[in-house]
Structure formats: structure tokens, C-alpha cells
Design a protein around this nucleic acid. Sequence first.
RNA 1: GUCCCUAUCGUCUAGUCCGGCCCAGGACAUCGCCCUUUCAAGGCGGUAACGCGGGUUCGAAUCCCGCUGGGGACGCCA
Length: 476
Amino acid sequence: MIRVRFAPSPTGHLHIGGARTALFNYLYARHNNGRFILRIEDTDRTRSTEEYIDTIIEGMKWLKLDWDEGPFRQTDRFDVYRDYTERLIREGKAYRCYCSPEELEQRRKEAITQGQPQKYDGRCRNVEKGQSIKVSEDQSKNAAVRFKMPQEGQTVVDDLMRGKVVFENNQLDDLIIMRSDGTPTYNFTVVVDDVDMKITHVIRGDDHLNNTPKQIHIYKALGYDIPLFAHLPMILGADKTRLSKRHGATSVMVYKEMGYLPDALVNYLVRLGWSYGDQEVFTREELIKYFSFENVGKSSAVFNPEKLLWLNSQYMINTSSEDLTKMVMPFLIQEKIINEEQPLDKVWLSKAIATLKERAKTLVELAKTLRYYIVEDIEYNEKAKAKFLNEKSRDLLIELKDALTSLPDFSVSEMEKIFKSMIEKHNIKLGNLAQPVRVAITGGTESPGIFEVLDIVGREKTLKRLDRAIRVIQNQ
RNA sequence: GUCCCUAUCGUCUAGUCCGGCCCAGGACAUCGCCCUUUCAAGGCGGUAACGCGGGUUCGAAUCCCGCUGGGGACGCCA
């Protein structure tokens, strides 16, 4: 049974990079009928917050990356880490370190200026029995615990993505596994938890590749089997540096707020690194069916918001108008086009959406363009008004209004007949009539086909708006 | 500074393992044309890439070496 996990730290929102790591874990688990586990790595108590835990979970749910076990929290497991730490000390595989963070920082700075490797110098490594260093009670109580890394030989990480990666052990640092306040640190908890949770494949970002040899030695010291590793390439911003807030929206929930569909984001994210021939658009089932590390690239990818926007527009087109009706509601409220209690005919709304979904790239755009269908009075775009609501169009609008008023059946085909006869009579192009009408009805020059628009807006509002446009022209 | 990863159009990528089908294919963006009552959507077409230098070979985007570029790591962060 394959078991994978996504292990974010709640020191920020679920961001684009994390979401993709989660997605690849999810797809690998589902593809192999394995288990997908969510674990919150909140050992850094100064930076982790409950709020971030909630938003990460919210983000996972929004993207429909459902997990099978968890969310587990490392803060619930401190006793476990403490036991393991004590065991390692007892066995001589870890030791107490009395150096203060300030001292270490000082030494690190010196090492950098002197061009020396920035590595713990190991001064507490062999003094555990206390002969050569005098330690006050206070110091003893506040000691951190370091893990003894081997200093000779090599460590090989056999990575599913990158093959065998060789590290020289003399590069390895005696890392701290327990802080002086008694809380454990990442490189230690990650190993303990992956063992306890029987993780078979550790799939994570490239930035962890360098930690892997250290973790391998912890596995060995604990006497456990080493899982398989797959280190994914990172996502970069347009300037090719690590994706960060400088590059715009990085939190997945911001994409929700901007009116993106979760499936579109997932589709975009999976194609950042993974490919399946020339296919661009995938259903969730296809992703699960086709996913494999063989088709994941090795180099980092630049996040391209424009392609995401395009994909979203494709998903808008391919989503049923009924589903879009449900999805757009919060945005209609947000845009103050409707209020929460306002009743709205869902069938009618869905018909309106059908005319707009191939024109709107996001749900926000969809909501905004829906405005002239829903609200009572429209606002004119000044340029459009100046160009089309003038003396030239006044008589046409009056004539059309009269014709539509007496029209027995206010249908697309009947309206079409009226427009046709009018343009023949006046020897004008359809656009000469349609554009002024469009401005009168929608306020602007861009909309779906004019007959569809009139049909959805309905006779009552249509006549009212034509009337208003005529008055506006007369008052000029 | 040390270590690790990586390198095909502006961007995401196919092709690389098993050299010839590739004077490099698709997608986004961009430009042009078509469709057209506007805007979209759609259709057609254009511009645009194998980082550089050495090898190996009849032949290299593909194999080997070097260089250069890019990224990451070096925390009592994860």
C-alpha cells in the first residue's frame, strides 16, 4: 500500500507551490489506490497559527484534494519526539549542546566573512560527560540537543525524479533536533512522523533535497527503513526567483476570491511540470489515470498567470450554466448586484449566464457582466453614450420602441423580423441599429447578440430603457 | 564561500532513456486574416527555441566532457 503525505507548516496560507506539492501527492496516491495523509507541521510555535491551519484546510477542500487520514498535528505529538530524542542521547547518537543561539550566530557570521563553511564546529559534541566544560545548572537546563552526523564517507539519496544524488558526509552538520525550550525541530519530526505514519513515498519540493541525507542518517540511527523520495522542481515567479508575494497572488484562496474555478487552478498547476503529450485540459479522472513521475519535468517552472486565465476561461465555457449559476451567486452579492435575500429566478439566470460564459474569463467578470440583466437601471458608458445615443439614432430607437411595444410575441425570431425590416426600410446596416440599442439596454458597446439580450432582459425593461435612452438624447 | 539540482520558442512543454521520422511539434501570449450586429468564442496563418565550446558518430536537441546561465540549500524555520 502506497502512503504519501502533504505536510505544510501553518506559517502562511496554502500557496501555489504548496498546493502543487499537495496535488502531486494526491494524484500519486489516487493513481496507485494509496492513502493520502495530511499532516500539519507546527513545531515552530512562534510562527504557526490556528488561523493558517484553517486556511490551509480550507484551500485543500476548495481544490478538492481530499485526504484519507489526518489532519495530524505535530504539536499533539511532542511526547513521542521527546522519547525518541532521549533514546538517541542514551545511545550516544545525539548530545546536548550548550552553545547559545547568539554565540552560534556570531560564529556563523565570522565563518561567512572568512569564507569558511557555515557549519557547526562540533564543540559540544564530545563533552557530554562534562569533563572539559563547566556547565551551570541554568545552561544545562536550557541545552539544545544535536544529532551526531557521520563525518566520513558518502550518503546517497536515491530519488525517483533525479536518480542517485551523492553527498559528502563531511558537508553534513550536527543539526539540532530539539530546541532548548524542549520543542523538536523539522528535520527530526519529519522522520519520526513519516516512520510512524508508514509513509512509503516522500514527495516534496526540491528545496528539501539537501535535507534528505541528514534525514537518512536519522532514519538509520532510529533503525528504520528509508522511504522512497521524489523531489519536485520548484515554481518560480516571472523574474525566475522563488515565487513569493512580490509576484502577486500566491495564496490559493486569493484565486478563489478572484473568481477562478478550483478545477482550472488544479489543471494549471498540474501542467506546471507535468505533461501528457499535447493535452492541455484534463478531467480529474484523467489526471488520476495518467499521472506518473515519468512525465514530470526536472527543471523549475515559471508561474504564468495568463495561461491560468485562459484555462479558467476554458473551464467557464465547459461548465454547465446551472453549475455556474450556483458558483456566481457569492460574486453577485460581492459586486452588490443582488443582496442576500433577493429572490432570483435560477432558470432565468442560468439562461443569462449561457450567453455570457464564453465572454467571461472569471466568475468575477461573469458577475459584473450579468449586471445589466439583473439590475433595474443601467449606467451608460460615457464613450458609448456619446457615440451611439445621438440625433442619428433617436428616430430609430423611437420606431423600434413602438414596434416592440405592439409586438404580440416578444421572441428572438419576432424581434429579428422587426430589426430586419427596419434596416431595409432605412437602408442601413444592422450595426447602425443594433449598437444604439445595445447602449440603451446594456449601457455599453459589448454584449452577447442583441436579440438574446433583449429576450433575457424582457419586454418591460427593454421598453423602459429604450424610453430612457430616447429622453437622454432629447435632453442633450 | 561550500554543497546540491537544472538547461528546447517570452512562458508552460513534446521530443532526450532506445542518435536519423525534428531545417524541432503542441499550448498560452503576441501579430495578421476569416466569421460577424458589438464583444467574445471559434477557424486559418505568421513571428519565435535546441545556452556556448569541444568531442564521439556517416549522422546529435538526443551520447560524453568542459564552460556559462538559472534555481535551491547551508537556522534553536519548515
